[in-house]
Amino acid sequence: GQEKTSSDPAAQTQQSYQWKMVTSWPKNFPGLGRAPETFSEYVEKMSGGRLTVKVYGAGELVPGFEVFDAVSQGTVQMGHSGAYYWKGKAAAAQIFTTIPFGMNAQETNAWLHYGGGMELWREVYKPFGLIPFAGGNTGVQMAGWFKKEINSIEDIQGLKMRIPGLGGEVFKKLGGIPVALTGGELFTSLQSGAIDATEWVGPYNDLAFGLYKAADYYYYSGWHEPGPVLEFIVNEDAFNALPKDLQAIVEVATRAVNQDMLDEYTARNNTAMQSLKDTHNVDMRALPADVMKALKLASTEVMQEQSALDATFKKVYESYSEFQNKVSQYHQISEHEYYKNRSVQN
């Protein structure tokens, strides 16, 4: 029996484990959806086949928004998703993905792994019997696709945009109308003008989705999602049932995928951007400075309002913003300064 072998280390290494992983994206969806497959390949290779993970796309076993519950209940052993989908279960979860005008990928990873972020994340998920791991990052996203020019704050007023999450709340503060839409309705609605704008991901995914066919202006930067972290969630009991070496393999594989996705996006986004500009003649623009400023102010307000509503949210947000404050000071004189210097024309 299994109970007997678990006390005997030599026998334990012989035992094999078959896991299932549900995800919030269609299988192999560019970027996001590749991560679960990559994870599965890594784990199988590293463990010599002792741990295999079968990946299910959104809706195959459970709908995309049910990943959390399915892993929490132990229906499957793990999932790949985004923490901000679980806002309704724990408000603080949103912060582990990203917040408007928050940290970029590099900084968020630093906060999570060396700034106390991961401990807080584990704490928030503990009551659900889940262990979270960072599971990829898209890098700074784009502000989105607009059918109308945005020249001033007035242009935001009455603008109908698909923009979920905290970004949507901020957008609403400036007089915009956030609209909830399903993926299937999104493209048609933008094309027909039922909505004026949508955010999606970045050039790589947006090009593939064909959004340039539905809207003329592609605005940057993604103030609302500056470096969204995706997540692997593992059922606590399932994880504890693994021998130490397989546990380590799971953990290391998530770290590898977390970095791998950022690398892929960085490489693909820049080639996709060229294609959007040159082949599809997309008008790429920066949002005007005063619009950005208004969005920033509104973001601070929204974050304060949310903190007042939920103690855990407040605690996590304080840790996050304290880290952001310090890391931006350093990045001001390192990354930021360097970007400036290297772009000087000789």
Binding site: P26, K27, N28, F29, P30, G33, G57, G59, G183, G184, E185, L186, F187, T188, S192, A208, F209, G210
Partner: peptide, 28 residues
Amino acid sequence: LGDVLSSAYQKAQLNMGIFSPESVSVGD
């Protein structure tokens, strides 16, 4: 049909390995 086809379409495109997840909607 539109609801069923839109998810089938996503799935099919990704299975094809051509990562162009265009969508089909009820309106289409």
